[in-house]
Structures are given as C-alpha cells and as structure tokens.
Simulated scan of single mutants.
Amino acid sequence: MVEDGTGRTPEVTAGHTRAAGPRQAWAGLPWPVRTAVTWSACLVVVIAGLWLLGKIAVLLAPLAIALAGTLFLTALLDPVLLRLRRLRVPAAPAALLTILLLLGILVGVGVLVWNLTASQFGELSQQLDQGLERSRDFVTSSLPITDAQLDRLIRQTREGLSGSAPDPVGGARTAAEVAGSVLLALVLLFFLLKDGRSMWRWVLRRMTGPNRAVTAEAGRVGWRTLGSYSRGTMIIAAIDATGIGLALVLLGVPLALPLALITFLGGFVPIIGATVAGAVAVLVALAANGPTTALLTLAAVIAVQQIEGNLLEPLIMKRQVQLHPAVILVVVTAGTLIAGIAGAFVSVPIAAVTWRVIDTVQRHRAPAPA
C-alpha cells in the first residue's frame, strides 16, 4: 500500500477529506446564517410536534375536552377538598362531598338564572336585531359603503354560517359526545380529587437523581398556576359581570341580568370574550335607549375592564400567570382556530402552565454563579 508522504494512505486521506467537507462548508457560513438555520430547524420541529398534538386532540375531542375540564375543576376545587381533609374527612367522602357541592351550586345558579331570564332571551334577540339595524344605518350614512354592498356582505356571512351549521344527525352526535364528556369528566374528577396526590407521588418515585427534584418543583409550580388561573378567572368574571350589570341597571338598559350572565361567561375567554360581551351590551343599549345610552354603556364597559385589567387582575392572579396581552391574544386565536370555543377556553391555561413549567426547569438547570 503506497503512502502519500504524510504517513496516510490516499484512501484514508480522501475519506477524511470527504467527511471534513460538509463540516468545513458549515463552518464557512456566516454566523447569522448558521443561527437562522439552527433556529428554523428547531422551530419546524416544535411546530410539527404541536400540529401533531393538535390533530390527536381534535380526533379525540370528547376525551380531550373531558380531561381539560377535569383538570380545571380539580384545580378549582382543590382548596375545598383540602379543607375537608383537614377536618379528618376520609378521601372518598371528601371528594364526593366536593363534587356534590359543585353540582349543587351549578344547578342552583342555573335554575335561578333560568327562572329570572328565560322569558327575556327572546326579547334579547329582538334587541340585538334592532341594535344591528341601527348600526347598519350608521355605517351606511358615515362610511362610503352602499346598502347593496353591506347587504351582500351580510348575506355572504349568513350563508357561510349556515353552511357551517351541523346537520340534525351531526347535532345529535355532538349532543351525545357532550353528554359523554360531562359524565367522563365527573368520574375523572372524583378519582383525581380522591387519589390525585398519591398518583403524583407514584410518578415521582419513578424518577431518579436530580430529575426528581426538578419534576417535583415543576409539578408544584404548574399546579399552583392552574389553580390560580381557574380561581382568579372565576372571581374576575364575577366582578366584571357584577360591575357591568350594575352599570346597565343604573343606565336603565333592559335585560341587564342576561347581559351580566353573558359577561360572566365571556370572562373565561381572555380579551376576546370581554370584547364580545361588551359589544352585545352596547348593541342592546343602542337599540333600547339610543346612542347616548349606548355611549355611556361603552364608557362603563371600558371603565370596568380597565379596573379589572390594571388593578384587580394583578391583585388576584398575582404573579402566577405571567403572559403578555399580545401572547394571550395570539394563543386564544390559535386555540379558537384549532378547536373552536373549547380551544378558546383552554388555550390560555395551557400556555400559562407550560410557560411556568419551562421557566422552572430552566432555572433549575441554569449553572450557579461563580
């Protein structure tokens, strides 16, 4: 075998050259290009993983909704369970009493609201139609839009909504899936309240080394974040509904209680829900009492939401849920596009818990300062 004067055979030299070629080409690229390529590849992998998880969640929609609702309710009811356990109530009866308390509150509030507002929802629809008609007149008189163009846009929107409406068979199947999801969520809620902590300890016992401490801390932070979000969101939604409802009563706007209920439900969808609920209240005020009352209603809605966003939310949520409003808006929009109303409800708590868990893991793995 002939050497090339360097102590290596030509075959070895050629192989080494071929192997070093791609590395040299990569090293020869400018560092912004290498950084952009690396981050783009990571972003593609993350987006592909999220897309795959989203597709699986859509395919298993009833199960995904049941799991999300179970975790939300478990975090919401965990303080009640702990209070019962401190009173030396066994785990199973404490979990059952907690669920019965939840069902009693929901049924009682539902019956009360239905008795007070069942006859008003038809009137609410009429008031909304009148408000939309007045808004239509204002748009056509103030903007360079003709009646024909606006009618065509409204007709296209209605056709799109009617085309996306489910058929009777699909509606029956959806109702069955919702009923099954509710039943499954209640069963899972009982077992999580009863055995959730023992399940978590079983998971931690399977961890070894420093991973156990990191996992335990990340789990505590994530669970604390979900609990703070669930309880804080319910309190803030109730405060918003109360404030806007009182403003509607003082302004003499009809249907104040149904509008307050819509505001409470909209409070569970950050930013978008409050905006939609406020728009409905302004439309009803416009149809019932004219533009002056509508402007006062708009001012009241904005004032309540500003007080809630700048004063109450930091006090109630504290620093457990740290997401910028722009991030919340993007997350809610993405959740709505992926899974509709259910996605809008669960997108923000998922993002908040994920961010807090990742932040905790990064802080634990960061090197200690010298």
Rank of each mutant, 00 (worst) to 15 (best):
V107R: 05
G243T: 08
G163S: 15
A352S: 07
H324K: 06
L87T: 00
L77N: 02
G219N: 05
V348K: 00
Q126E: 10
Q306I: 13
A48M: 04
G110N: 09
A287T: 10
A281S: 09
A66D: 06
A279Y: 04
E3Q: 13
S119V: 14
V353M: 03
V332L: 04
A326T: 07
T263N: 05
L112S: 14
L153Q: 15
G340S: 07
L189I: 09
D78H: 07
L67T: 02
A288Y: 01
V37C: 09
L101H: 04
A344P: 07
R83L: 12
P349C: 10
A148H: 03
L102G: 13
I99G: 08
D78S: 14
T354R: 01
S347V: 13
R85I: 12
R224P: 08
L193Q: 03
V2Q: 08
F72L: 08
A287D: 06
D147M: 08
L246S: 09
A260K: 03
G28W: 02
V203R: 08
L100M: 11
A165D: 11
Q322S: 15
A352Q: 00
A64R: 00
T98P: 10
L295H: 07
R224G: 11
L82E: 08
H324C: 11
E123C: 12
K55E: 15
T38M: 10
P291I: 13
R212K: 14
V203C: 14
E3T: 14
A61F: 07
T275L: 07
L124K: 05
Q156N: 13
D167W: 00
V330H: 02
Q149K: 09
A66S: 14
E308H: 08
P90A: 11
L67G: 04
R365C: 12
P270R: 02
A57E: 06
A213I: 06
G163K: 08
E11C: 11
G69P: 10
R224Y: 04
M317C: 04
A14T: 05
R205H: 10
E123T: 13
V330K: 02
A334M: 04
V182A: 12
D195P: 11
L312G: 13
P314M: 08
L246H: 05
I154F: 01
G245K: 02
K55L: 14
A216R: 05
V44F: 05
L67R: 03
A368E: 00
